[in-house]
Design a protein around this nucleic acid. Structure first.
Lengths: 206, 206
DNA sequence: CAACTAATCTTTACACTGTTAAGATTACGT
DNA sequence: ACGTAATCTTAACAGTGTAAAGATTAGTTG
């Protein structure tokens, strides 16, 4: 006597969104296929009509979250007055970190298990690669690539930049981290890299 | 008729070491309490005489691995000719990254779930805090602290340094990362921070 | 040494998990 | 209108963490 139709109609997308909601609320470890199915009002085996396995659903959810991150990053780029100023890269980094601070469960979800391919070399811009890093490479190359900086040096700088930003996101989203400053106002200083071990030593900053 | 004694004799330590062996071989996701118990030749519920829960065993395993990391870091410090040269910090960072490259499963194991406390402020040197970061703070303060650098600035530099190093470890240990260079020879350049977005732009490096 | 206590381990059981197999229901193209 | 394929349900299985009850042994105390 239930008026619920036998077919859900939009189950695939609903599973993805319900899964992401669970991630946000309880974290990756608490996520189970059965909970997700129940959230969608559907039996435990129904997801297998749309995904080969739990991991397959997780991959789709990763794509979904990555798309959100890409939007945030693209907005950060657009909001820069000068698209060719190196500050574009800082703005991207800041948005990258803040994205994960605003959704702490997304970091372990995206990176603690097999995610997309990541290619650290500058030219490789394959379709399967992690889009946010490809976006960083593209913008860096646009800003610095036209005036003769050597490719290997650019690769090193990009890796350093991403490592710093990615490491900040990792640290800032740790569960038991204590920091009495405000991340949003601090991130930029830290990424700007005005100080640093070597430069402090060389300049005698101390 | 088995000659195996009823009591194991050293079960607590055996569980920790068997668990770490499983982590190294199959990764965190494949680790189960029952497998660890079986590896120790003991029944499935035996671990509960020594650990309150699976998570409790994992915490003990984290302590064990953290201790290994501390040895590596301390050796790196000792092998520096001048203990007061900023290079000590680079050597620590290099060892930090190489430690996780040599044991790729340790990174998600240590950081993707509740680990120890992490206190980013310089003075807080509590006992429960993540010892490798405390070691970094201690050494940084010894090298740079005696000549009037402001505390807040030191905190910023330490966070930046650790973020870079930690991010490098995260990226280098990702499962599907492609890098055609040799990490060991590249890490130092990247950590040294000679280039960087801001400095490249300001110096007109390009 | 004897006896009691506490620590350690086993067996059994339960709820939950991912996944598969079989079959029911429905949408859709011919 | 019918047949096929897509979608969903029910039932079942092996593996998981964990608790309860009891067996075995170590350690301590008289």
């Amino acid at each position: 006597m239930s008026n619920k139709p036998y077919h859900h109609g939009n189950l695939r997308n609903s599973l993805i969104e319900a899964g992401i909601e669970l991630i946000n609320q309880e974290g990756l470890k608490q996520l189970s296929l059965r909970k997700v199915a129940a959230l969608c009002g559907v039996s435990q085996a129904a997801p297998y009509s749309h995904f080969q396995s739990k991991e397959d659903l997780l991959l789709a959810m990763q794509d979904y979250v990555t798309e959100q991150l890409m939007e945030v990053l693209n907005n950060a780029i657009k909001s820069c007055p000068n698209q060719n100023d190196p500050y574009v890269l800082i703005a991207m980094g800041k948005s990258y970190v803040m994205f994960f601070i605003n959704h702490p469960h997304y970091f372990p979800f995206l990176f603690s298990q097999p995610c997309m391919e990541i290619n650290l070399s500058l030219e490789a811009n394959g379709t399967k690669n992690f889009p946010p890093f490809e976006l960083l490479k593209t913008n860096f190359f646009r800003i610095f690539g036209e005036n003769g900086m050597m490719k290997e040096k650019m690769e090193d700088i990009i890796i350093q930049l991403w490592a710093t930003v990615h490491g900040l996101a990792s640290i800032a989203t740790m569960k038991y981290v204590h920091y009495d400053k405000d991340w949003e106002t601090k991130i930029e200083d830290i990424i700007w890299n005005k100080y640093g071990v070597s430069s402090s030593a060389e300049r005698g900053d101390a």
